[in-house]
Write a protein that binds this DNA or RNA. Structure first.
Length: 103
DNA sequence: ATCGTGATTGTTGGC
DNA sequence: GCCAACAATCACGAT
C-alpha cells in the first residue's frame, strides 16, 4: 500500500484511474513553484550550460537552504494561489450542478 | 474528526 | 508535447 504514492503519480493520472473532476479545478501552485520562478534564472546564471537534472537539484537544495521567513513570500504566493484554486473549485462545484453555462 | 491519497503546480533541456 | 528530480500542497474522499 503506497503511503505516499511516490512511485509514479502520473502513471495513475495519465492512465485515468480515478474519475477526476470534469472541470478539474486544478489546485493552487506550491511554494516551490514560485521559488523556482525566481531562482530558475539565478541558478542557471550560476550554472550556465547545466540542464534541468542539475538545476532541479540545486533549486531543491537552495530551497531548503532558505529560512522559514525566506520561504514566507513563496508560501504566501502558494497560499494566494491556493485561494485562487478555491475560486475554481467553488465555480466548478456550482457549475457542476448548474447546466453548463454556454459561453 | 481523522487519516490517506491522489492530483496538481512550475523549472529546464533534449528527442 | 512529454518526462524527468525537486518540493509543497492540500482539498477531496473514505473511514
Amino acid at each position: 500500500m503506497p503511503k505516499t504514492a511516490k512511485a509514479s503519480r502520473k502513471d495513475n493520472a495519465v492512465r485515468g484511474k480515478k474519475k477526476k473532476d470534469p472541470n478539474a479545478p486544478k489546485r493552487g501552485l506550491s511554494a516551490y513553484m514560485f521559488f523556482a520562478n525566481e531562482q530558475r534564472e539565478k541558478v542557471r546564471e550560476d550554472n550556465p550550460g547545466i540542464k534541468f537534472g542539475d538545476v532541479g537539484k540545486i533549486l531543491g537544495e537552495k530551497w531548503k537552504a532558505l529560512s522559514d521567513k525566506q520561504r514566507a513570500p513563496y508560501e504566501a504566493k502558494a497560499a494566494a494561489d491556493k485561494k485562487r484554486y478555491e475560486d475554481e473549485k467553488a465555480a466548478y462545484a456550482q457549475g457542476a450542478d448548474e447546466d453548463e453555462e454556454s459561453e
